[in-house]
Design a protein around this nucleic acid. Structure first.
Ligand code: FES
Ligand code: FES
Lengths: 150, 150
DNA sequence: AAAAAACCAACTAAATTAGTAGGTTTTTAT
DNA sequence: ATAAAAACCTACTAATTTAGTTGGTTTTTT
């Protein structure tokens, strides 16, 4: 499993986009300042997010990035997948072959955990995070007032 | 989050102990052969498992390791914790201070995920894994025949 | 006395991550 | 036209971590 700064940065940056990008595109320079993430590193992450069609870019002055879909339709799992972090915790990438080509003793445990993590992150949209300022334990229909963030 | 080969090795080795250690202690040389884990690496892992009182050791020929408790009372989360892998996926180790000493935008998301992962692994004992050969998705009361493993 | 095992400390190679450097291209505003 | 703002692109680098190795010692049994 890889779930490190890279994935956290990507989700944070996308959330920043969801919050500040309603009217006009948001430049990476802005995100870099607000979230304290290296601009160049952000560029690398957004190259991947764009390849996976999670964001659209606008070049030139006044340009930046926009969410490619409604924030209700972008899920945390997609963002993490896009930047090459994997929530898969098996040794065999799900192939079930890490002990002489056979399933090892603990494969099902890791597979099951992986599925649960992915399921959890697949159920949380950027809109959920905006609504709840990241507090998702009691997520779903419980409507929390939109907070002006940052 | 660190959940890599080290944690998987530790759980696999403990499961091997649970399976083969009913009568006499199991040597690391045996586990090394059966599970194909470097003996020296196993020694390092078992030093930690012993420090956390999850196993007892018996020195000298015929010696080896034994579970320090019933397999019903040893949980996967404890094993992972013992070998210094952490299932914590926050950037702040739960302190909530990674953005100018304040909670960052995504803290609650990661905290919540961490709690769920830990909760999941805290609910699975070695006995569960022995019973189900690692298949824990429908765990709990569903009794599956004990399989002779390996 | 020999062998089997735990126990211990230090080192190493490989991989990965986060970040840097140094550009180019596109587009807008003056 | 020019300058500036931004995306876009490639390659490098320092630090960290991991998995594994080496070379022992101590304890206990046969
Ligand atoms: S983790 Fe999948 S077979 Fe071992
Ligand atoms: S992850 Fe905890 S404050 Fe940012």
């Amino acid at each position: 499993m890889k779930l490190t700064t890279r994935g956290r940065y990507a989700v944070t940056a996308m959330l920043d986009l969801a919050i500040h990008g309603e009217m006009q595109p948001v430049s990476l320079a802005d995100i870099s300042k607000r979230q304290e993430i290296s601009l160049s590193y952000l560029e690398q992450l957004f190259a991947k997010l764009r390849r996976e069609a999670l964001v659209d870019s606008v070049r030139g002055p006044g340009g930046g990035y926009r969410l490619a879909h409604d924030s209700e339709a972008i899920f945390v799992a997609q963002i993490i997948d896009a930047v090459d972090e994997s929530v898969d915790v098996t040794n065999c990438q799900g192939k079930g072959n890490c002990h002489h080509g056979e399933v090892c003793l603990t494969h099902h445990l890791w597979q099951d955990l992986s599925d649960r993590i992915h399921g959890f992150l697949s159920g949380i949209s950027l809109a959920d995070l905006v609504d709840n300022r990241g507090r998702v334990a009691a997520r779903g229909s419980d409507t929390v007032q939109k907070l002006i963030l940052q």
